[in-house]
Design a binder for these strands. Structure first.
Length: 840
RNA sequence: GCGGUCGUGGCGGAAUUGGUAGACGCGCAGCGUUGAGGGCGCUGUAGGAGUAAUCCUGUGGAAGUUCAAGUCUUCUCGACCGCACCA
């Protein structure tokens, strides 16, 4: 008998699909379009399990939708600019481009081996000048529409390497290569005005009906809209030059009578002015800036310190004098950069008040069961608050707002936590920002006709710093209008810039325009986007913003890019580290005697806890790998990697293969319309139920359940093999149905079988099976019989048996009468076709 | 620290959304086939007690709502993801 030779089969069908261009798509107005997209990978070297999972999910969906008759766009490309290429260049002395192209080739081969149904004619690579050329044009459009601007912002500065470090490259406040403490450096950088869209991005979340709620909640919290009041506090210092008034922002105006201090950001204009006269203040501000951390995570953890100035602010109602502090936890970019502190009703203010011995005045009555040694932040009755006394928080907010606004002491104000998006990177391996500067600093955009500004290839990584600055010629240019000497911008784009519009470029990847509107109008928006949950905020929010920005520039007709979103869970694995802090991959790690086994984390190249899918593909083939990736875990859940189980998927395919091959003569015969007599009803019912359930499972991404159900049905076929041999038509129908249902998951083996049993056109071009209603109806149901909620027995009754009859049948069951011991039931609850509960 | 998610046998997970917990699979055990191993087939498999029928316990932990809770509510513990220059 012919053995299941996956190597031969997989190669054969991959070649045939390729030759017949079965996955190439073009606009077709007669068919309904379906655009399915998986997040494109960064070409880090080899595929990892997360990729295999992501791309299998997308491929199954693409193949399923094709059988359902859709015109499916399923493209793939490379997010190929980024930091790892530069790291490789420094460490291994290899050019970023060569390294990247090599990785792309490797990974593309692997993707092809997996049998993924991409339209490769649409492949794009973001480091290709044909891609970033359009990105530079987009930048100019943004510039014209005032969506991009320059401002000063802090970066991580490595004083030894004289370069800017990414947050990832700063470990415990030190540079990862130099080991030297990192400094904060203020630099002028490019920003995109995402905050202009803050309100819209938040509001339209509610229209994204097919996005997971968790992602929408995360984005909502990230945007962080808060509505509050801007209140004016006069100061007691008449000599202040800049401002004699401090404007604070608060969402808790109701606690105004509990105010015991005013806090200013270290870079607040008043702080700055005070520092000019007072060296102690100057020192304090410098300390704050030196110890400033850029990671929000660290910022929340740093010790909260303040400096008490001589200045006082006058409470707008009580006229009390409140001390003014400069404090390191107040941010100039958020709100007005100034707050009033109410220690009794805010935990951070409470800790601050304890530390600096400030008054703690309760203004909301603390409920009895609350801890008095911390701030009470909940709702309650206002006390010690003059005309607010007796009101609750909501009422008090309303009343005080009305009063202060009426007195011209405050204004309503809505602020957002969302900050503008800094897109400048002081690196080589990115898209050059198409502007130049004259000697006097005037910024000149590069005219569109002079684009693209391409990266120089002859670069030198031996020196630290950015090779674009080091390059002898590249940055020197001339003003296109005046011919004056000019210097090119040496910064490049954040790589999120590329991934914010690649899904649009896929519609017309070879167009000379940024976007071919006709194509975009047909294909967009994306019907299904699939990617890791780690992108829930940044990438997805940037892409939503970009789509709106491009819409406002008149380039596309949609505002939301992704109709449906599936966020897959992470593939995790334990980490291995030696005592010197070096990471090891699982194979090496276990061999080292003093290895420290760390907790399970997302598989990542930097921590080396990755499992290479190559060996799985080599030993078992793509179909087994795909089947295994789907059968064990629901997509949205994290997957703790375990090698066991792959073999089970392989065994199943072998078993199916052997069943078909050993009956091939029978199955090859042409089938007549299969008999539908009562003997066959059991199998037909099982088959139709399987079709029905599996279809439903595919549509809802319950691929693990779909697999379980297909296996359940094939278990029936295996069991009844001898019986089925006598019923060729039914046998063939059952096999054809099974492999059609399996086709999206294990496309190669299924295609081979499909042809072996006598079909002439690709199974992927055949339509999806449809369940026949008449075989879906069951005639009897099993009803659970409970006594006091505990299961005692079950009874089989005809479907829709009346409640009375169910009750009668249940009460005469021996198991029930025995337990009841002649007691009369207190209550009987009957749920038709499901359950009866007798309460005694 | 803040925001989000998850927690069910030895393991991955299923449960028609409040109605028979453990589908499907991995692993393991026993038996068969085989010179042996592998492979394949059959049987069993939540835990505990019992020869058995059967009974008791059980969805991270504690409490609550309900005729009925893995599912809802509150608290608590643990794991994972994100936190703006990794992608």
């Amino acid at each position: 008998m012919q053995k299941y030779n996956f190597k031969k089969i997989e190669k054969k069908w991959q070649k045939k699909w390729d030759e017949n261009k079965v996955f190439k798509v073009t606009q077709n107005n007669k068919k309904k379009k379906y655009y399915v997209l998986e997040m494109f990978p960064y070409p880090s070297g080899k595929l990892h399990m997360g990729h295999v999972r992501n791309y299998t999910l997308g491929d199954v969906l693409a193949r399923f939708k094709r059988s359902k008759g859709f015109n499916v766009l399923h493209p793939m490309g490379w997010d190929s600019f980024g930091l790892p290429a530069e790291n490789a260049a420094r460490e291994n002395n290899i050019h970023p481009k060569i390294w990247t192209v090599k990785n792309i080739n490797t990974m593309k081969t692997q993707l092809k081996q997996m049998g993924l149904s991409y339209d490769w004619s649409r492949e794009i690579s973001t480091c290709d000048k044909n891609y970033y050329y359009h990105e530079q044009k987009i930048f100019l459009k943004f510039l014209k529409n005032d969506l991009v601007y320059k401002k000063s912002s802090y970066v991580n500065w490595d004083p030894t390497e004289k370069c800017v470090l990414a947050n990832e490259q700063v470990i415990d406040g030190k540079g990862w290569r130099s080991g030297v403490p990192i400094e904060r450096k203020l630099m002028s950088q490019w920003f995109l005005r995402i905050t202009r869209y803050a309100e819209e991005l938040e509001q339209s979340l509610k229209d994204l009906k097919f996005w997971p709620d968790q992602v929408k909640t995360m984005q909502k919290n990230w945007i962080g809209k808060s509505e509050g009041l801007k209140i004016k506090f006069h100061t007691d210092n008449k000599n202040l030059l800049v401002l004699r008034i401090i404007e604070i922002f608060t969402t808790r105006a109701d606690t105004l009578f509990g105010a015991s201090f005013i806090g200013l950001a270290p870079d607040h204009p008043i702080s700055k002015e005070l520092s000019k006269k007072e060296p102690k203040i100057k020192n304090f501000i410098e300390t704050c800036q030196k110890n400033l951390v850029l990671k929000e995570e660290d910022f929340e953890k740093i010790e909260k310190i303040g400096f008490k100035t001589q200045l006082h602010a006058i409470h707008p109602i009580t006229q009390e004098k409140l001390p003014v502090f400069i404090a390191n936890f107040i941010i100039m970019d958020y709100g007005t950069g100034a707050i009033f502190g109410c220690p009794a009703q805010d935990q951070r203010d409470y800790e601050f008040a304890k530390k600096y011995d400030l008054q703690i005045k309760q203004v909301i009555k603390t409920p009895k069961n609350q801890n008095l040694n911390k701030a009470y932040t909940g709702d309650g009755t206002l006390i010690n608050s003059k005309f607010l006394n007796g009101l609750n928080v909501k009422e008090a907010k309303k009343k005080i707002s009305k009063y202060l606004i009426g007195q011209n002491m405050a204004k309503m104000k809505t602020i957002y936590r969302l900050k503008d998006w800094g897109i400048s990177r002081q690196r080589y391996w990115g898209c050059p920002i198409p502007v130049m500067y004259l000697e006097d600093g005037t910024m000149i955009p590069v005219p569109e006709k002079d684009l693209p500004i391409t990266l120089p290839e002859d670069i030198n990584f031996s020196k630290a710093s950015n090779p674009l600055i080091q390059h002898p010629k590249w940055k020197h240019t001339k003003c296109p209008k005046t011919g004056q000497v000019a210097i090119r911008e040496t910064e490049t784009f954040d790589t999120f810039f590329e991934s914010s519009w690649y899904f649009i470029r896929f519609c017309s990847p070879h167009s000379s325009k940024i976007i071919d509107k006709k194509e975009a109008n047909y294909w967009l928006p994306i019907d299904q986007y699939i990617g890791g949950i780690e992108h829930a905020i940044l990438h997805l929010l940037y892409a939503r913003f970009f789509t709106r920005a491009l819409y406002d520039c008149g380039l596309i007709n949609i505002q939301e890019p992704f109709c449906n979103l599936l966020t897959q869970g992470m593939v995790c694995h334990k980490t291995y580290k030696d005592k010197n802090g070096n990471w090891y991959n699982p194979n090496e790690g276990l061999k080292i005697p003093e290895i420290i086994v760390g907790k399970s984390e997302k598989m990542s190249k930097s921590k080396k806890n990755v499992i290479d899918p190559d060996s799985m593909l080599e030993k078992y083939g793509a179909d087994t790998a795909r089947l295994f990736m789907l059968s064990d875990s629901p997509p949205e859940r994290n997957l703790e990697w375990a090698d066991t189980g792959v073999n089970g998927a392989f065994k199943y395919l072998n078993k199916l293969w052997n069943l078909i091959i050993s009956n091939i003569e029978l199955l090859k015969q042409k089938k007549n319309s299969y008999s539908k007599n009562s003997d066959d009803k059991e199998i037909l019912m099982a088959m139709n139920k399987t079709i029905h359930n599996v279809t439903h499972d595919y549509e809802n991404f319950h691929f693990n359940r779909a697999v379980a159900r297909i296996r359940e049905f094939t278990n029936i076929i295996f069991e009844k093999e001898n019986e089925l041999k006598k019923k060729q038509n039914l046998f063939k129908k059952a096999i054809e149905t099974t492999i059609k249902l399996l086709a999206p998951i294990t496309p190669h083996i299924v295609e081979e079988i499909w042809f072996l049993i006598g079909n002439k056109s690709f199974i992927i071009q055949n339509s999806w099976p449809k369940a026949e209603d008449k075989f879906l109806k069951t005639t009897t149901v099993t009803i659970a019989v409970q006594i006091n909620g505990k299961l005692k027995d079950t009874i089989d009754l005809p479907i829709d048996t009346s409640e009375k009859k169910i009750e009668k049948a249940a009460l005469t069951l021996p198991s029930v009468t025995k337990t009841m011991k002649k007691k009369t039931p207190k209550k009987i609850i009957v749920v038709k076709n499901k359950v009866i509960n007798i309460v005694i």
